[in-house]
Every structure is written in C-alpha cells, then in structure tokens.
Design a protein around this nucleic acid. Structure first.
Length: 423
RNA sequence: GGUGAGGUGGGUGAGUGGCUAAAACCAGCAGUUUGCUAAACUGCCGUACGGGAAACUGUACCGCGGGUUCGAAUCCCGCCCUCACCGCCA
C-alpha cells in the first residue's frame, strides 16, 4: 500500500507509474480531492468534539459544586452538538473508506532504474553465467528422469492428494533435504538469522504482506479456523515485524527461513506445469531483510550477490533479469529474477525473485524504525528473495547433469547428500 | 472438547464514571556527581491524523466493534485473542 504522502506530488506518481503501464491520474486526482474534503471535515468534527469535551468538564465542575440547575442548562446544549458530531463521524468514515479503496489500487512506484516494457520479453538481462550443457540425443526431461530413477513420484502424489503434490522418495527425498540444508547453511554464513515459522497464518498476517484481501485465491484457506497456508515464508517472517518500531542502529534485520509453500495456482494449466515446473506444494528457503531507506538498494545488491553465489555453487547456467515495469509485481519497486537453464526442456526457469518493496509493505505492516536524529518513527524498507526455490533447481540439476551412468550431484552438495550420483 | 481467569504504554503492573495519555517500578535517552566501572541524583521518555510560518495546539486511541451517559480504560452487549486447569494426544 502506497503511502499517501506520495500523492502530494501527483505528477511524480503519475510519471513513475506509467512505467508500470498504469495510468494513475484519475485515482491520484480523486485522492487529492477527497483528502482535502477529509481534512476540512476533520477540522469541523474536532472543533465540535473539543466543545463537547469543554461542556462535559463544565458539567462535572458544576455538579461537584452542587450547582445542579446550571449543570442541567449546560447539558441541554449538548444534544445538537452531539448530532453534528455523529454526522461528521459518518461522513469522515465514508471519505476515509473511499480514500483507502483508491489507495490500495495504486501499485508501488518503480525505482528509477526500471525500464519501460510490456512484459517478460522486455526484461533486461543484466548478467549471464555458466555454460549450457550439451546433452546427448536421448536426453530426458526431468519428469522422465524422476520416474527412471524412482526419485519423484507424481502419480503417487495424485493418489494421496492431487496434481501438483509430488512425492519425493529415496535419493530424491535426500536431495531435497540436502538442498534445504545447503541453502540454510549458506544463509547463516551470510549473517541471516534462521527462523522456523508457522506454516499457517491468520488474516492479519495475510493482510500485512499484501496477500489479502485481493490475492485471496492464491492461498489455501482453512475456513473452519480461518487460517491460511503460507504461499511463501515471506508472509510469516515479514510479519514478525508487523506493528513494531525498531531502532535505526539495529538495521538491517536479516532473516532466513525454510518452509513448504502452498499455492492454489488456480487457472494455470498446460505445458508450463509439467513435472516440477509449477506445483501446489514446494520447498523454498527465503531470505528477508528489513533495511534503512537510505541503505535498501545496497541491501538489494547484497541479496542478489547471495543468490548468485548459490546458483554458481550448484554449477547451473543462469541469468539475472532486471524486470521491466510491465513484468514487475504490484508491490515491488525493483525486482531481479534469477533463471536457470533446464537443458532438456530447453527452457529458462525462474528460481528466485529478489525484490525491494521500499515502504510499500511496511506501510501496511506498520513497520517503522526510529530515526536517530529526529527521533520520529519512519517507515522502514522491506526486501525479500528466494534463496532458493527447490523444484526448478531440482529440474535443472536432473536434466543438466544426466549422464549414461546416472545423475551427477554437484560437488558442493555431496557432503549434504551423502552420495555423488543418482543411479 | 469441558471449566475458569484475563486482555492497559517497550516490560511488569495500578487504575471501577469526570481532576487519567493514564500511578509506580523496570528498561531506554539526556545530564549532574564520580580515579575507572558501578552506584546515586535530576530531567525526558506513546502513536496516528489534523490546524499553525513557528512557538504551539486540537482530536482520537487502554484487544476489536457497538451501546448507556453531559462525560467511559472504568458500566452494558457482541466478537476476537491469550493464559491456567481437566480430558485427549504428537
């Protein structure tokens, strides 16, 4: 949710949001108009309330002095004021609601470095590293490798739960565990405090990170208890900082968490969902930072470096994209996507998305830091990224490392796996 | 699932109708004193939204929502949450 302070500079907001192909002029215009009405009303309402308070105090004094008649006279003055206050409050609430409705429609302002673009095709490749492996003629896609070596059973998952809930077994399960441990260990080394969060969250948390109310359909909802299965550890971890004021000198806060992630993915079918490409339940290690506004872009670079080091150590060919305005999420100010090349599918697969949300999330979360000079609470910046999401990493590892002897495990993972080949 | 207790500022916790943004203590900040540390003393120490060039000032907020009243942290109603004990159980 965009801080209303931005709307005090309408041309800037409108110009910036054009990058996201979003025409904000009508909304911003309405907000400003409503805002002025709201302030006018607030002045009137507060004057009336101040008078009420004064009369009440008077009545109290008169009563104590035993001047009952005078108190009665004072009381008589209140009924009209009371009616006015009631009406002011109703009007005020109505305007506030309207402002809010408009406010939540505004996407986050993109960072200056974000380029104009319509969609994925316009994203800027900022880095590309690693050789794309040359596979033999009879190379298999990962879902066939998974069946061949009996390490991931998609059909069994359908039996137990449904499509998109694969069962990992044997070395497949061990590989999952190894990846999780590897990612967590790397994050710890980089100074992130590890968190084991709840996998279900309440409404307030869903709201805090922006999944609710609009993206409700993305999450599994346990209606009896009104709890939501988390779509990412970002939700519980970032909500740790909901409604808190932190000390500036303690920034940045760095957290990492492994969690299973649950996504309904309603409406996505077809080729892209084959195998591990898109699942309803998957594993991910997330990194989250709470940063000082002046430092948050350094923080973003820091996180990108961290994710980069992970894909490099896994020896996967990858590229980093700076998302264009048209492909960025509603909430992000700047996003880098990581894609690894899955050699049998011959596809780039997104395995991480690292974003700076600036104060967009913090505004909803009421996450503030106390400025060291002014001592005033200010909105902090929140950032997060996958480090990393497992399924597509596994897909690429299986496909890229397939050999006639079996699937080679990258060196860095061998100590975590306890084996160096799947055969 | 049953029964009971309770939700007040960063923390503990007082407050049962007006003089309460809310005692006291702890933590925190600034200062005084002091060989150092420690201690002692003094002051400050909520948030949001308004008005004002500013000094300053108004309003709201004691889990959330409604009600009673001239006036509500305090009384009434509804909801949410937490804790304790019992039962069941990883």
């Amino acid at each position: 949710m965009l801080n209303l302070k931005f709307t005090r500079n309408p041309p800037l907001v409108i110009e910036k949001l054009q990058k996201k192909n979003f025409n904000a002029s009508a909304i911003v215009g309405n907000i400003i108009e409503l805002y002025q009405q709201k302030n006018k009303l607030q002045v009137q309402a507060e004057q009336a309330k101040a008078e009420m308070n004064k009369i009440s105090a008077e009545v109290g004094n008169l009563m104590r002095q035993g001047k009952k008649d005078e108190a009665e006279i004072a009381k008589a003055r209140t009924s009209e004021i009371k009616e006015n206050i009631k009406q002011f409050d109703l009007d005020f609430a109505a305007i506030e609601e309207k402002v809010y409705e408009l406010q939540v429609q505004l996407p986050n302002l993109p960072h200056d470095s974000v380029s104009v673009g319509k969609g994925a095709a316009d994203n800027e490749i900022v880095k590309r590293l690693g050789e794309i492996p040359v596979l033999p003629e009879n190379a298999l896609p990962h879902w066939e490798l998974a069946a061949k070596y009996n390490i991931i059973d998609f059909e069994l998952g359908v039996k137990l739960t449904g499509a998109g809930f694969p069962v990992y077994r044997g070395k497949g399960a061990q590989l999952q565990r190894a990846l999780i441990n590897f990612f967590l260990a790397e994050a710890s080394k980089a100074g992130y405090e590890e968190i084991q969060p709840p996998l279900m969250v309440n409404e307030a948390s869903g709201f805090g990170t922006g999944q609710l109310p609009d993206k409700e359909g993305q999450m599994y909802h346990a209606t009896i208890d009104n709890l939501y299965l988390i779509p990412t550890a970002e939700v519980p971890v970032t909500n740790i900082y909901r409604d808190v004021i932190v000390e500036a000198k303690n920034l940045p806060y760095k957290n990492t968490a492994y969690s299973a992630c649950f996504r309904r993915e309603a409406g996505s079918y077809g080729k892209d969902v084959r195998g591990l490409n898109r699942l309803h339940q998957f594993d991910k290690v997330e990194i989250v930072q709470i940063a000082h506004p002046e430092k948050s872009y350094e923080t973003l670079e820091d996180m990108v470096k961290h994710v980069e080091s992970l894909v490099q150590k896994l020896e996967l060919p990858f590229r980093i994209l700076r998302l264009c305005g048209g492909d960025m999420s509603f909430t992000s100010a700047l996003t880098y996507d990581f894609e690894v090349f899955s050699a049998a599918q011959k596809m780039w697969l997104e395995v991480s998305s690292v974003s700076n949300f600036e104060s967009f999330q913090a505004n909803r979360l009421k996450l503030r830091y106390r400025d060291e000079t002014t001592k005033k609470p200010q909105l902090a910046h929140t950032l997060n990224g996958s480090a990393l999401a497992l399924p597509r990493i596994v897909a690429a590892l299986l496909e890229n490392n397939q050999t006639p002897e079996g699937i080679k495990i990258p060196k860095v993972l061998v100590p975590y796996c306890g084996f160096d080949i799947i055969n």
